[in-house]
Amino acid sequence: MKTEQNTSNSQFARLLPGELFIKEHLTNDDLTLKTNMKPATSNDPNVAKGTETLSESLGLWMLYAVEKGDQVLFAQNVEVLKAYDYQDGWIAWKAGGGNETLVATNALVDDLRIAEALYMAAEKWGDETYIQLANEVGQSILENQSREGLLVDFYDRQNKVASDYLTLSYLNASAVQLMEKHQQVNKELNNQVHSLLNTLPTKNGFFPFSYQLGSKEYVYHQEVNLIDQLYIGYHRAQVGISSPELWAFLKEEFARNGLLYGRYDASTKKPLVSYESPAVYSLAILTASELKDYTFARDLYERMVRQQIRRPESEFYGGYVDMSQMDTHSFDNLLPLLAERRLFNEGTLQ
């Protein structure tokens, strides 16, 4: 499958069932991605539902287009970005859904991901306009969310105030590296981000959840969400930092039970839930790919796709659908699709 990596013509790329599902069941008329397959509304402004769309989904879809080598899909999503609640590089964390309530905050992790995808696309296809857009996002982050030499979670555009904490799973150091390469952040900030990730403490093998800038303290959660842990592990692996304690726990847990649960107790390391998460497996696969742990990546993939509807005759073919609820979340389909494409590109899957 080397053709996929070396050409911008996506006709050579294998069409994956997950991509079909997303296009058929999770795409709005304006080409934004739905948060849920099932129509729903929420009275909570901090929750996205139904046809509302997330900057998270947009960034993952853009990364997938780059990974696939699909220039048309990427260009389509650049137009979606421009039509989104986007102002001088600031990107609302959710939009659409017929909800006119002002969304005043962004999300650092999503903005970094979108900038990363734009820089990668510019490098892949030689389009300077993508660099300009990525630089706008980088400038917004630098101007609004840089505090004490670090980055913080969000900027509230309405109240003109930034948060005073950093959720550690948000810290995408490879995106910050690209921002430094394109002279949007200085070397000091890039080094500080890398240093923070590199020197993260652990408690009983788990990373802290966040860092409070005011008190300069790390915050740990008793209930450990593996998605948060794996995002930290993945972002570290992307810039050459291993996470031996977390990785050993994941491999031991998978060897013992043949699966990974979604949440664990920080003290006992026992699962707190009975469910498995496609997003957990996806992030573990992407991390394994960075660490060149290809056998484990394949084992994780085989377990992940057990949750996918693989029968071509099914209406929901390719989706990670909870059939008891007849619903699914965009996150639980985009991340598995990205991980699967990565495995095909590197030759782990044939």
Rank of each mutant, 00 (worst) to 15 (best):
Y130N: 10
L178P: 03
Y84K: 07
L200Y: 00
A48V: 05
A279C: 06
A75C: 06
I114R: 03
Y294P: 00
K181R: 13
P39I: 09
K34G: 08
L178G: 03
M37E: 14
K2M: 11
E313D: 15
V78C: 08
S57Q: 04
T199W: 06
L151K: 05
R147H: 13
I131R: 14
E290Y: 02
Q184D: 15
L272R: 03
N257Q: 09
S289E: 13
V80W: 09
H194E: 13
V185C: 13
L196F: 02
A122Q: 08
E340V: 14
A175I: 03
F254G: 00
P45N: 02
V47R: 11
S163R: 03
E315F: 12
E79M: 10
N106K: 02
L349K: 00
G97C: 05
A107E: 03
G262H: 11
G347M: 04
L15W: 07
L250E: 04
L335P: 01
E245R: 04
E67I: 12
V137L: 07
S324T: 15
L337C: 02
Y220V: 01
E19V: 09
K292W: 08
V109W: 05
L31C: 10
Q177I: 07
N186F: 11
H329K: 14
T53S: 14
S324C: 07
K269H: 13
Y170I: 08
S169Q: 08
I309V: 13
L349F: 02
K251H: 02
Q183L: 14
R298I: 08
L291H: 06
G98C: 00
L118P: 01
E245M: 09
M323F: 15
G59A: 07
F331I: 09
Y165G: 09
N172T: 06
D156L: 04
E180G: 02
S195G: 06
A92L: 06
V161C: 07
I22Y: 03
N36W: 15
E223I: 09
E315Y: 13
D110Q: 01
P271S: 09
M37V: 10
L54F: 01
S146C: 14
D153S: 10
L337D: 03
K292A: 13
K34S: 10
Q87F: 12
A104R: 10
Q139E: 15
A248K: 15
R306D: 12
L108H: 01
P312D: 04
L54M: 08
F254S: 01
A339M: 07
P278W: 05
N144F: 12
I285C: 06
S195E: 15
R236F: 00
N28P: 02
A266S: 15
E253Q: 14
V137Y: 01
E302A: 04
G149W: 07
Y320P: 01
K187Q: 14
I232F: 02
R298G: 06
E19C: 03
N99Y: 03
Y170M: 06
K124Y: 09
H221E: 15
D327T: 07
E252G: 11
Q183S: 13
L250Y: 00
T287Y: 00
T27M: 09
L151Q: 07
Y218E: 08
Y264C: 02
L286V: 03
E24F: 07
K181M: 10
R342P: 05
L81S: 07
G205Y: 00
N144A: 06
T167K: 08
L189V: 10
N257G: 07
N28G: 05
A284S: 11
M326H: 12
K34I: 08
